[in-house]
């Protein structure tokens, strides 16, 4: 029993991201309101961002900014990767966040256009109106 618990707890970051992802996926597929669908989409993307960021974490490490950055001579010897979280995933995720925001922006703009057209953002109602065309 305790083995299973350790297994779950030791990888809790993965479990969180999986749960979040499933919530997002559920919202995207099952919700009928398009704004809610796109909220789900945001959650889905954020889950992946969390996953990436959590892979860069090391226990006991700090933010990846060099403490003795100005004094090159000493710092070269002093830099120990174990003391810093892995910066690469963070950097990547900055881009991913931008991408996510852009996607959300486009999506909401389209929702607005659809609302202007059909005066609703509920999927079944839109489909109904499309059928009437």
């Amino acid at each position: 029993m305790s083995d299973v618990l350790t297994f779950i707890i030791s990888r809790f970051n993965y479990w969180i991201y999986i749960v979040l992802m499933m919530i997002g996926l559920y919202a995207m597929i099952a919700k009928r309101n398009y704004v809610k669908k796109f909220i789900g989409m945001s959650i889905f993307q954020t889950a992946i961002i969390l996953f990436y960021v959590s892979t860069g974490v090391k226990s006991g490490a700090t933010i990846p900014i060099l403490e003795h950055g100005h004094d090159i001579g000493h710092a070269a010897a002093a830099i120990n990767p174990d003391h810093y979280a892995n910066p690469l995933p963070h950097v990547l995720m900055l881009t991913a966040i931008v991408v996510g925001v852009a996607t959300l922006g486009v999506a909401l703009a389209v929702v607005q256009k659809v609302h202007d057209q059909y005066e609703t953002i509920e999927e079944p109602e839109i489909l109904f109106k499309l059928g009437q065309e």
């Binding site: 995207m28 796109f38 659809v114 057209q117």
Partner: peptide
């Protein structure tokens, strides 16, 4: 119908890209 059909495109497209990213 372009805008309405675009909504599903965005959702599916994002899922696809996110799978890749993952």
């Amino acid at each position: 119908r372009a805008a309405a059909s675009c909504l599903n495109y965005i959702i599916m497209g994002t899922i696809g890209a996110s799978f890749y990213l993952l």
